[in-house]
């Protein structure tokens, strides 16, 4: 696998350029969060602004209920992730291995859920949640988040199971396993990269969502992080320092998880195809 040097250099140049483009906006947010005195705009291009201070970050923890929001977000996201992974793991398996009645319609239905402009579902969704007395409960939020993340997760799990040869389960069945045991003991461990990705998606869907959350959670003690973040925003008096600092803190956990799991991303994210 030898390559001409110029080609290798070219690869590095391209990757370097795009890496800078990919990361730059994030640095922009960090810069604003460090800028003293609530200024969104400045002609200063330096990454660390003059008189940089961590004051906004300190204030988030001391003057605002940042820790409460963080805890609420963690609670909601963890439950949604766990539920999402379990449901997608079994559901995706059924779609991959069984040609049951409603199989094709089901797969198509999953995709159609992605087609509806989500903002239009808000009003009926709210009415439903209010009638079921789920306003100001995490339960309502968790069910909604699970439902939003599930279609993609099911699709993705199904695609991954498709790449696992059925012969493995057949062998296990011959060895005396039940269908469920064959799934649980043989296929599921092999699907771990996809499970990791499913978990990541469910987590992301709930960690950074605010439109639905704003409708359901109407008490500041129940706020999740994005709602706390939004409370710094107003049409003509946004507290940009807090907003940027909170943005950084909201993004950080997702990024850390993303980066930690990035090696699974490539092997685990399969939307179908490549089946033998």
């Amino acid at each position: 696998m030898k390559e001409p040097r110029i080609l290798t250099l070219g690869r590095h140049l391209v990757l370097l350029l795009f890496s800078v483009i990919a990361v730059y906006p994030l640095f922009n947010v960090i810069t604003i969060s460090l800028r003293p005195g609530d200024k969104l705009r400045s002609t200063d291009l330096s990454l660390i602004p003059d008189g940089a201070s961590l004051q906004s970050y300190v204030a988030l923890f001391t003057e605002h209920a940042f820790l409460t929001w963080l805890w609420n977000s963690i609670l909601v996201s963890v439950v949604v992730t766990a539920t999402g992974v379990v449901l997608a793991a079994v559901g995706g398996y059924a779609f991959s291995r069984f040609k049951f009645v409603g199989h094709d319609a089901g797969m198509l239905a999953l995709m159609t859920t992605q087609m509806f402009p989500a903002t239009m579902l808000l009003l009926p969704l709210y009415i439903m949640v209010a009638k079921l007395h789920l306003v100001n409960t995490f339960l309502g939020l968790m069910v909604l988040y699970t439902a939003t993340a599930l279609p993609f997760c099911l699709w993705q799990m199904k695609g991954f199971y498709d790449t696992i040869p059925t012969s493995l389960e057949e062998a296990a069945r011959i060895d005396g396993c039940s269908r469920f045991q064959a799934f649980y003991r043989v296929v599921l461990p092999l699907a771990s990269p996809a499970l990791v990705i499913t978990a990541l998606f469910s987590f992301m869907a709930s960690w950074s969502e605010y439109i639905v959350a704003a409708q359901i959670l109407q008490e500041s003690d129940l706020f999740t992080l994005p709602l706390g973040l939004k409370s710094f925003q107003a049409s003509m008096s946004t507290q940009w320092g807090y907003y940027a600092a909170a943005s950084v803190l909201v993004s950080l956990p997702v990024m850390v998880i993303f980066i930690a799991l990035s090696r699974y991303l490539v092997s685990g994210l399969t939307l179908g195809a490549v089946k033998e």
């Binding site: 079994v90 859920t113 439902a147």
Partner: peptide
Amino acid sequence: HRLAYVFVLPSFVVIAATIVYPFFYNIML
């Protein structure tokens, strides 16, 4: 295919519960 139905059912219920009512409500609107 009992196993398949049991496996799919929970996902189906969760999605249907949150999508179906708003969807038909929207058609009505």
